[in-house]
Design a binder for these strands. Structure first.
Lengths: 190, 190
DNA sequence: TACCGAATGTGACATATGTCACGTGATGCC
DNA sequence: GGCATCACGTGACATATGTCACATTCGGTA
């Protein structure tokens, strides 16, 4: 499927906009290719863009003072990634985004997003529902963190994204679940 | 401060709308009073309203199969509370909302929210930014869960809401932090 | 081919946390 | 006044998890 169609199908899930308006919407995105391992956002960067994944897989992560990595999100196709705290507040990035595999994204600047939201009620509607969905997903993950043990969270993750099992090294899965790689390993080998 | 002024100041933080439009916005809310301990949303309910806290304190919580409570949010004045998963998806409530103290809220139905968002671009803009803020707060809490230990999370919470220290029983603080009340107690008594 | 580094598994041990039990003090209600 | 309930602290112990150390496997590369 072409990038334009992927985005259109995604937008169509939340709102109905005219073909003409979609063309305009799409024209504001810039397509980019990244290689496996490449960084997209690094801690301390000025963040003025967000990324819609067409193909491949990104991770959003945080490195603490003890050099431990925590993964906030794996961004699979049709998911958005950025440092939204920095993006919305104008502060410097406190999290990193990089590529787990070769990845194709559509990139949208904050300036373009806000301009389009101002010009078009429909587009603002789309972004409201996109964030609604993100908020609910984030709340669900929080609840899962408190309520489920590591094994349950692992199985939940793999059930939701079976492709992660072969795509992503286990120590990254562990960093997403918030446990050490040893603990994850012992979950299903003892 | 009057309810109308509290809401107006809150809305003004995210968007600038005309006095006339704000009057209309406000007219769609219904003010309600609840008593300490009273339930506002119970698991299994149909959820078609959200609540803006004017005064007092709510908690949003989940009870798991082992009858353990996990608190997703304390809703202080000018915060919103509901089961947003249920509210946005139309499913039945999976979380509960009740009153920690006597509480005054402004209540808005989903129907009214969506009607107003459709009628008014400015109001849709407001709700987009409200959810943006909620999303960022949720992400921060998730990160805090993974990165900080219980003591750090406790101090972070009290620094953010000093009034909680005297307002809320310690076992509820523990349920927010995701630890047992005994563990919380030992944090600062041993 | 030989070597290196990354990913993974696993044993040993320390630490954090949960669970259960019990005691105390404060509060509210009959 | 007396009783029940709740909030809270704390000791004892089990369990889960982190940390450190080391071995193995596998791909990629010189």
């Amino acid at each position: 499927m072409q990038p334009k169609e992927i985005l259109k199908e995604h937008v169509g899930k939340f709102t109905s906009i005219s073909e003409e308006q979609f063309q305009y919407f799409f024209s504001r995105f810039e397509q980019r290719s990244y290689r496996k391992g490449q960084a997209i956002i690094t801690e301390g960067d000025v963040v003025d863009q967000e990324f819609f994944v067409l193909e491949g897989c990104l991770k959003t992560f945080y490195i603490n003072d003890d050099i431990k990595m925590f993964i906030l999100q794996f961004a699979m196709p049709t998911w958005w990634a950025s440092d939204y705290n920095a993006l919305y507040s104008g502060s410097k990035a406190s999290v990193n985004v990089d590529c787990i595999t070769d990845t194709e994204v559509l990139c949208l600047s904050s300036k373009d997003r806000e301009e389009m939201c101002k010009e078009s009620h429909d587009i603002e509607h789309f972004f409201r529902w996109r964030t609604n969905r993100g908020y609910v997903a984030s709340q669900k993950r929080l609840l899962s963190f408190m309520n489920n043990n590591t094994k349950q969270r692992y199985e939940e993750l793999i059930a939701q994204y079976p492709e992660l099992y072969n795509l992503v090294p286990k120590h990254l899965i562990a960093a997403y679940l918030g446990v050490s790689r040893e603990t994850l390993s012992r979950l299903y080998h003892s």
